[in-house]
C-alpha cells in the first residue's frame, strides 16, 4: 500500500498530540493575555505576523477571489483586534482564528448567493469581470519542461475550479483537511459542528471532486 505509506509521510499521526494540545491551549491563552496586558498593539502585530498568510489563503480557497479574500481577511483581523482579550482558551488559538475566518467567509458567500437569487449580480459574473491573472500564476514554472508546467497548471486550475463548485460547507471541510492539514477535531471545533458531520462533509466533498475530476486522477 504505497498510497498509505505516502499518506503517513504527509500527515503524521495526530492522536498522540491531542493530550498535549489541550494543555497547550491553556498556556497559549495565558501567554496571549500576558502579551495583551503588556502591549496590545505588539501582541496584535505578533498574531498578524503569525497568521495573516494562513487566514488569507483559507479565505482565498473558500471564496476563489483575491479581492474577496482580502476583504474577508481585513474583517477577520479587525475582529481579532477587538476580541483577542476575550480568547478563553477552549480551543487552540489557530482554531479560534480559523473559526472567525470561516464565519466571515461563509457570510460573504451567503451574501453573494442572495445577490444572485435577486438576479442582481452573480459571483461568477463578478469573478469573471474582475479577475486579473496574478503574476505568480503566469510566471510559475514547475515541472521538467514547459509542457509539463502547462499540464500541471491546467490540472491545478481544474481542481481549483471544481473545488469552488462544491457546496460551501463541503468546500470548507475539504480545504481545511486536505489543503491546511488540520485534524478532524480542530475542523469540528472551527466549524462548530460534530465530528460525524465533519467526516461526512469531507467524504462527500472528496467523492464529488473525484467524480468531477475523473480523467485527471487516472
Amino acid at each position: 500500500m504505497d498510497a498509505l505509506a505516502e499518506n503517513e509521510k504527509m500527515f503524521p499521526k495526530e492522536i498522540a498530540l491531542e493530550r498535549y494540545e489541550s494543555e497547550a491551549t491553556v498556556a497559549e491563552r495565558e501567554a496571549l493575555l500576558e502579551r495583551i496586558r503588556a502591549d496590545k498593539e505588539k501582541a496584535f502585530d505578533g498574531l498578524f505576523e503569525q497568521y495573516h498568510s494562513m487566514v488569507f489563503h483559507l479565505a482565498f480557497r473558500i471564496l476563489g477571489d483575491r479581492e474577496e479574500a482580502l476583504d474577508v481577511s481585513q474583517e477577520v483581523f479587525f475582529t481579532i483586534y477587538r476580541k483577542m482579550h476575550r480568547f478563553r482558551g477552549e480551543s487552540s488559538l489557530k482554531t479560534w482564528i480559523f473559526r472567525i475566518a470561516i464565519n466571515r467567509a461563509s457570510n460573504r458567500c451567503r451574501w453573494w448567493n442572495r445577490l444572485r437569487r435577486r438576479g442582481t449580480v452573480s459571483l461568477d459574473e463578478h469573478l469573471g469581470r474582475n479577475r486579473n491573472p496574478d503574476l505568480s500564476e503566469t510566471l510559475e514554472a514547475e515541472g521538467n519542461s514547459p509542457e509539463d508546467a502547462l499540464l500541471l497548471q491546467e490540472k491545478r486550475s481544474e481542481i481549483e475550479r471544481w473545488l469552488l463548485r462544491l457546496p460551501i460547507h463541503q468546500r470548507i471541510a475539504v480545504v481545511m483537511r486536505d489543503v491546511e492539514g488540520m485534524s478532524y477535531e480542530d475542523i469540528a471545533e472551527a466549524m462548530q459542528v460534530s465530528l460525524g458531520t465533519v467526516k461526512s462533509r469531507i467524504a462527500r466533498g472528496r467523492e464529488e471532486l473525484k467524480r468531477r475530476l475523473n480523467g485527471e486522477l487516472g
Binding site: 499518506n7 498568510s53 487566514v55 489563503h57 481577511s73 505568480s136 489543503v179 471532486l209 473525484k210
Partner: peptide, 25 residues
C-alpha cells in the same frame, strides 16, 4: 484515485497575502 486527489489538493500552491494587507487592517 482518492489518494491522488488528496495529494493534488495538498500541492495546490499557497497564495501569498499581499504586502499591503497589514496597512489595510
Amino acid at each position: 484515485r482518492l489518494s491522488r486527489l488528496r495529494q493534488q489538493l495538498h500541492s495546490l500552491r499557497r497564495v501569498p497575502a499581499p504586502q499591503y494587507l497589514r496597512h489595510l487592517v
